[in-house]
Design a protein around this nucleic acid. Structure first.
Lengths: 330, 330
DNA sequence: AAATGATGTGTAATCGATTACACATCATCC
DNA sequence: GGATGATGTGTAATCGATTACACATCATTT
């Protein structure tokens, strides 16, 4: 069937040890042997079995990625960045998708362990005790992106600062009644930190944080639409003059509702998002948002993982840069 | 270090054969042995080594995907669909990204072969001789999505019909001067077929196919913008009254340019795209486009691959359904 | 000329699983 | 009560690579 190192050895008239040395370019291999092996490999199209190799070396050349959802813009940018640096090291990427289910984060951690991934990048949505225990029981390096998971190196987005800056922009424009569309608190970064920054900034500037101006969505465009609808219909008299949405998708949904109802953006109500989805530049009005440089973040976390795999004793907690993109919705 | 099947056997006081039988639930395992093994596994958190398993069984439980570009909406939808069906079978996905480089398609085919993927899904951008030869030399099933690669089963989008339908819509609205923004012919499906449908339909309805009304982009939004610009500036007197773009991204770019120049869409110029990018619904005016059901296509190609892996002698060439989405840009 | 080190190659153990085969034991059937 | 088949377990070969170790040859050094 598949040609093996033994076949190559036989055909080239050498021992498989020599073939192995040739393949891995370690140890000495004579000119003659080298040429014969080269030729036989060429003829047969031989490729070493990774399974056999991994069994011996304990290295698979694969790094696992645990994503909350495969088909989101953020995920694909991050994966692209990770891939960018990993492929240079000849490493492949094994993808898993938790579909936002915390149990699956644990399940996939186990799975990647059994597949002996050389390292794991976790885009967590929670930081439960169980998850932390499971990570601890993982013999290969695990790093987290976007969420500060205690005990492991991570690269997080500067959610607090970015959200504060966005609020600052809104407040600087004179807005007093600012609404908020967030997500569930179980997600510490997106649900927790961004909301905390919102509240802190409101209080810091002596502005009222009114429950009725806050609504929760689930990352989807539709949920942004519904959240906005709730805010408007629950506040007949005093509706907000600006709304801070924690994602661009929800901001897009919110804008849809507002436009439908005849509100002018930003004259009647300003809208801000986070994430710089491609779309945000092309909707009308274009959306003021935060660029989180997801692809670069992917590259950075990959570099971190690589460094740790190379033995660097890293316990780093890094924060990634961000950039405010002012457009027409504010 | 890692606990192995031997450790489990020793701790449970049985042979590793029995443990293996327990793990794979084949052969008989007595009640007592079963319980002891169960307990030891629980205690140790043991997970069988996939490398060792694969070495023996020749099955890795991994299927490889070769993508032209990881971070596109199409790719991530397709991958999501593939993942959807693969995970039910306990299969993992190994991603590779050719960055639109035909040589890499071959390189990754080799790589996936050496990693002994159980099957390969190829989202090809070309169908060169070399590629076909390499596929032929691959001992595991290879299927193609989106491109009809001779000699292997494939699921293609109904590019000709979909494009014809779109042209029909445009022509039905009374347009006579219809422009076209395409991509390089090296991509048979997107570059070739869609353009052919455009030309055929023009001719069929006795409409002039003017070179100056056709421009080529590279899938990017910016290239759509530039292509539109070229069409407008090269046709001072007789500009098209409609433009058919082969992707939504390029259509978006084209619309940007038109809006910038003060053209009204669709009154002055109608624009149509293909792909139903999320964005297309939210830009102004919303874009008339074709839904290719990428996620379902991903599921379908995964099912095809699975069937072939299960021994079904499939040589099928399927075509995926599509749906015209009429919105406001036409 | 003997010692030394570089060069080149092979033998055999090993990684952690699966599985064909052999061998017990025990209940059931005629 | 011996044949039969189901149940339960172990021995050992095997998958395809890597690598420690041994050994041979040859050139160079002293």
């Amino acid at each position: 069937m598949m040609t093996t190192i033994n076949d190559i050895a036989k055909l080239a008239g050498v021992s498989r040890t020599t073939v192995s040395r040739f393949l891995n370019s370690n140890g000495y291999v004579g000119q003659e042997a080298r040429e014969r092996i080269e030729q036989v490999i060429e003829e047969t199209g031989y490729m070493p079995s990774q399974s056999a190799k991994s069994l011996r070396t304990k290295k698979t050349g694969v790094i696992g990625i645990i994503l909350p959802k495969i088909s989101t813009e953020t995920s694909s940018r991050v994966v692209s960045g990770i891939n960018e640096v990993m492929k240079k090291k000849g490493m492949q990427i094994l993808l898993t998708d938790t579909e936002l289910d915390p149990d699956k984060e644990i399940e996939y951690l186990r799975l990647l362990k059994s597949r002996q991934a050389d390292g794991i990048i976790l885009l967590a949505t929670n930081i439960s005790e169980r998850l932390q225990r499971e990570i601890h029981a993982t013999p290969v390096p695990v790093v987290a992106l976007g969420q500060d998971v205690p005990g492991i190196p991570s690269l997080t987005y500067a959610d607090y600062d970015a959200s504060s800056d966005m609020m600052q922009l809104l407040i600087g424009k004179g807005h007093k009644r600012i609404g908020f569309i967030g997500v569930a608190q179980t997600d510490p970064a997106v649900g927790g930190t961004r909301q905390k920054a919102y509240k802190d900034m409101m209080e810091k500037h002596g502005l009222e944080v009114r429950e009725a101006w806050m609504a929760e969505g689930d990352f989807s465009i539709e949920s942004g639409y519904e959240a906005m609808k709730r805010i408007i219909t629950d506040n007949r008299t005093e509706i907000p003059t600006a709304v801070f949405c924690v994602t661009d998708r929800m901001a897009t949904g919110a804008m849809e509702y507002l436009k439908e109802q005849g509100y002018r953006i930003p004259e009647d109500i300003a809208v801000a998002g986070i994430g710089d989805a491609v779309m945000s530049k092309y909707i009308s009005p274009s959306l003021t948002t935060m660029d989180y440089f997801n692809e670069e973040a992917g590259e950075a976390i990959a570099e971190m993982l690589l460094a740790i795999m190379a033995g660097e004793n890293s316990d780093k907690k890094n924060m990634h840069k961000y950039r405010l993109i002012k457009r027409d919705s504010v």
